[in-house]
Design a protein around this nucleic acid. Structure first.
Lengths: 223, 223
DNA sequence: GTCTATAGCAGGATAGAC
DNA sequence: GTCTATCCTGCTATAGAC
């Protein structure tokens, strides 16, 4: 990596910083904070070992910055996709709200790899919370939750217990999260074939399950 | 820890081994494999630093042995509790199967701490699989899954698609797993009060949600 | 079998040249 | 701003005394 004099220094600076964040996110998502070394990150990013300390102070801070400047914007993107799909579909029904929500997370506006990375990072925090977890709960999760509650309240009878609704939302969230990172396992059990449309199938399932529970074969319109 | 001459050596041997497994499980569950050092484990177990290598060869092997000799028996215990509760309740219905299942995992035969430890360990493996994951999938998860499929098939119309059923079971599993280790978060959102009966409430919710989906206030018999 | 002492190494971090 | 060289800490693992 020779320094090209026609690139402004500021540009090179940003480039190094970005590459570090990209590679760090990728590696942290794959194997977790402690299993990944700074040496590994800098070498994957093809930058000098000292760059992490220069740009972020220390490893912990690089990790936090991954959440701040990569994870959180992506979370906003997902939420935006959810809201647009809701608006776009006219008069919202419970079905539509749930479907839009599940779609935003499982099919969403990003590539499969990017989505996996995104959800692996948060899975790690759920399993072993660090400082980043607080950040995400306060800045992403709590607002998202508030919005969802409002949306659901709008389309459903107000007779519903607020706490009940919270549990409902957690149930949907649990499926969305879990299905994402247990997908290899699910694919194994559902059968090796037709994994292409597994995503669509999962969304369909989540929507149906969330609305009606397990399919007891009572309905005519089952898939 | 002075050596008491009236204890047979074999006993002392087993004691050291057990203490190591106990503390290792606890620490690994809390903070994960890489974040925990052998020094920390041996010092928590009040045994010598070299004991891990003597008894288990190396750290990785101690971790695997935690799964073999602590995690897996506990998983059997949970399954047993599930089966007994099923048998005990006479003629099984879908409601009963699901309720027994959720109870076995959320109220189960062990203390809350033990259950948390148990589920944190597997959460870690789900987020970042190691060799232990294979072990658990083959020896615990796959059989459990087979049993569940049979149970559900018995109590439900055979019209149901097998793959559909697999997804149903995964949905229930996702809630059981997720609710367990997101409980602090849930407690926060549901409200600080009456956390005593949160467990019962969660089981109730999982059963109802699994059977009927989100409560749209249409039914008279809602909780 | 247990313990001490230590080898041997990989990790994060920094000082200082450029 | 970047890079090299290096410090120092903390880790796993083991050799050898007891």
């Amino acid at each position: 990596m020779t320094y090209k004099s026609h690139e402004p220094k500021a540009q090179k600076f940003e480039l190094t910083r970005d590459r570090l964040l990209d590679e760090a996110e990728n590696l942290f998502a794959q194997r977790g904070y402690y299993a990944v070394s700074v040496r590994e990150i800098t070498s994957a990013a093809a930058v000098n070992l000292a760059a992490v300390n220069y740009h972020f102070g220390n490893k912990q801070n690089l990790y936090l910055e991954v959440f701040r400047s990569r994870w959180m914007p992506r979370a906003s993107q997902i939420q935006q996709s959810f809201r647009q799909s809701l608006k776009h579909n006219g008069n919202p029904t419970p079905d539509l709200v749930i479907q839009s929500f599940a779609r935003a997370f499982l099919e969403g506006p990003m590539s499969a790899e990017e989505r996996t990375r995104h959800l692996k990072l948060i899975s790690g925090e759920l399993a072993q919370p660090t400082e980043a977890f607080e950040l995400v709960v306060e800045q992403v999760f709590r607002p998202l939750f508030g919005n969802l509650l409002q949306d659901m309240r709008k389309v459903m009878p107000d007779a519903i217990d607020e706490k009940q609704m919270v549990l409902n939302i957690f149930s949907i969230l649990s499926m969305v999260l879990y299905f994402n990172f247990a997908r290899p396992l699910i694919a194994q059990f559902v059968g090796g074939r037709d994994i292409d449309d597994l995503e669509t199938r999962l969304v369909d399932h989540i929507v149906k399950f969330s609305l009606y529970g397990i399919d007891r074969g009572e309905k005519e319109d089952s898939i």
